[in-house]
Design a protein around this nucleic acid. Structure first.
Lengths: 257, 257
DNA sequence: CGCATTGTTGATCTCCATCAATAATTGTGG
DNA sequence: CCACAATTATTGATGGAGATCAACAATGCG
């Protein structure tokens, strides 16, 4: 729950924006050094959250905008009797707290899955960013739109796909996103670190934990995928795509404020 | 399917932006006359679509950004075997086509429910808007974030609410949005025009048409609501809120580019 | 090495999908 | 203005995907 101590000593501590490891991958569109310095000056803090801790409570307004630098997290909403729906998963480069700025009332919570490090940007400076650097403002909108596309896809799953199809679509989507970020191990069948528990998957797909387990098991027995030692391997992408009718989103560079 | 003829002769034809009827309601935050003129100059066209027609195909990239001026529409995604999921409903003031700008690959389709009139803004001028009028850029992000909040809520419904709860949440949400736009008839129990068929409701909530009918019927028999002659009346808001655990989003002014 | 979390499997039940049929409503052309 | 077609709404009967209950195995962690 609390922020991590001694973030500065950790290897996953976000460095100066000009040294940002995320920008070294070709997943993000280039930004001028001047603007990187602007972002650096705008950043008020860096923060670390340990696995399982709460980054933002559901009924709490974020007092800042965050970008995920390392680790996995998720956004969720819940009902008063405890039923919980995961809206989407957050990976490095994703934004946290944008909706807060634009809605009163409680919107959603954010929990860390793995240890997570974040860059913190004060909300009041967002306005300046819009005024002074319109292309960065454009990037913020871009990131918001991209997140909504993920939520759209998840809504299609929970609304219209059966259990196996939902799982197939989710595994492919997460694998594609992680691969795009350069997180895949090309020496191990393109495997990615996969920190989700079956409970996360169930909550994201609107399924019970038990039925998620059975369906996951079925796909595994059919040789479509493999989850082992915290890593996911896509063994039969064609079959998974057929199951989910997955439409491969062309991978392109995205902005990162 | 085709655009409406002779839009200019119709009462719902969008006027000059300085005369925009939407801005006369107190639902939208004020914008200076100068900026209204800017928006007016940016607007390349006005368009009308007849009820049931397709505003944007699912696999087609919008070549422009639209704002809904009058009427109801919806965004949807579908699977190749025809299963369709409505993502959210679009009411006056909502934006169409923003995601297009930020994703390759097919994203979603948009269909008109009633006759719909739109204002058309060329995508290439969106960049100029961001550069020249940061507060309007801010508004675009606002509208995008607000839409995602609606999708989030719908995802919570399809993922975790049962049939009656989903319907209760949807009816309340639509009623609140329409009322906020000043579309409620205060002389008729706050009723709103309600053009959705049960098929729309089913597709939005991830339910079968038949089960939607039964659940709707049950709520009606319990005296919670009334749908008659194309209008919706909320008869027992408390009970509906209890069912959906509805959290009333405080009504506040929103931007409108 | 004990305890908590996570994963697995069987049995039973239920909510909702599907199939089938009919009424009500809307729209349309003669 | 009415007859007729098409869409929309309604109700019954049946079946199934997935929820729930219960128990136990495996894994991981302090």
């Amino acid at each position: 729950m609390p922020k991590l101590r001694q973030l500065a000593n950790r290897p996953d501590c976000p460095p100066a924006c000009t040294q940002c490891e995320l920008r070294k991958s070709d997943a993000f569109s280039p930004v001028s050094v001047g603007q990187l310095r602007y972002i650096e000056a705008m950043r008020s803090d860096r923060a670390g959250y340990s696995a399982g801790s709460q980054i933002k409570l559901e009924n709490q307004r974020a007092k800042a905008l965050f970008t995920v630098y390392s680790g996995w997290a998720f956004r969720f909403k819940s009902l008063s009797d405890g039923r919980r729906q995961i809206l989407n998963f957050l990976l490095p480069g994703d934004l946290i707290g944008l909706q807060e700025q634009f809605s009163d009332g409680p919107s959603h919570g954010v929990d860390a899955i793995t240890d997570v490090t974040l860059c913190v940007f004060p909300l009041e400076k967002l306005w300046d960013l819009y005024r002074d650097h319109s292309n960065l403002a454009y990037s913020v909108t871009w990131l918001a739109a991209r997140e909504e596309i993920n939520v759209d896809e998840n809504l299609l799953s929970t609304g219209r796909r059966n259990a196996s199809e939902r799982i197939a679509a989710l595994l492919l989507s997460l694998h594609r996103r992680a691969t795009h970020l350069g997180l895949a191990d090309i020496h191990d069948r393109g495997s990615i670190a996969f920190p989700l528990t079956q409970s996360h998957i169930a909550d994201a797909l609107g399924l019970s934990l038990i039925h998620t387990n059975r369906s996951l098991r079925k796909l595994h027995r059919a040789g479509l995928h493999l989850i082992e030692a915290g890593r996911l391997v896509i063994l039969n992408p064609k079959a998974l795509e057929r199951l989910s009718e997955y439409y491969d989103q062309p991978t392109r560079q995205v902005p990162l404020i």
